[in-house]
Amino acid sequence: MNLFRLAGDMTHLVSVVVLLLKIHTIKSCAGVSLKTQELYALVFAARYLDLFVHFVSLYNTVMKLVFLASSFTIVWYMRRHKIVRRTYDKEHDTFRHHFIVLPCLVLGLLLNEKFTFREVMWAFSIYLEAVAILPQLVLLQRTRNIDNLTAQYVFFLGAYRVLYIFNWIYRYFTEPHFVHWISWIAGIVQTLLYGDFFYYYILSWKNNVKLELPA
C-alpha cells in the first residue's frame, strides 16, 4: 500500500470521525444531507458484499466494517435520534436521491468488469459513490450558516478522493497492467464535483471568513 492510498483512507476516516463528532457530541446534524448519508450507506453495503467472502487484509476488513457501521450509524442518528433528528434541515435537503440510484444500477449492469452479482454490485457502488455527494453540495449551497465541522467533513471527503487519484497514478507506474477505467473515470468525475467547493473553502480559509457557497 502506497502513501497516497493510506493518506486517502485516513482523510476518509477523519471525515467520518468529524461528522460523528458533530452529531454525537453537539447533537446536531444541521447542514448535513441525509440523502447523501443514505447513498453512502447503500454504496458501502453494495461494495462490501465481499466482506466475508473475499479476504484482502485485516486492515481492509476493519476499514470496511468501520465505514459500514459509521454510515448506518449516521443515518440512524439523523432519522431516529430524538434530539439529532430535530436539527435536520429537511426543507433544504430536497435532492431527489432515489432518481440517481436506478441509473447507477443500470450503468452497473451495463458497464462492469465481469457480469457476476458481486462485480455488478461493485460497479454500481463505484458509480453511486461518484454522485453521492451531490445532495450534500446542494444543501451547502442553500445553507446560510455553514458550521466549521460540516465544512471540514466535506473538505476531508474531497481530499480523500484527490489522494485516491494520486494513488492510482502511483499504482499505474509501479504495478503491471494496472488499468481500471470504471473506477478511474467515476473517480475523476467524483473529484471534479468537489472543485467548486474546494475553491470557496480555500478562499474562506485564506480570508479567514465563514464559508458560504454562492447559489
Partner: peptide, 10 residues
C-alpha cells in the same frame, strides 16, 4: 487478474 487487484481498495 486486472479485475481483482483494485478490489483491495476501499
Amino acid at each position: 487478474s486486472s479485475g481483482s487487484n483494485l478490489k483491495d481498495e476501499l
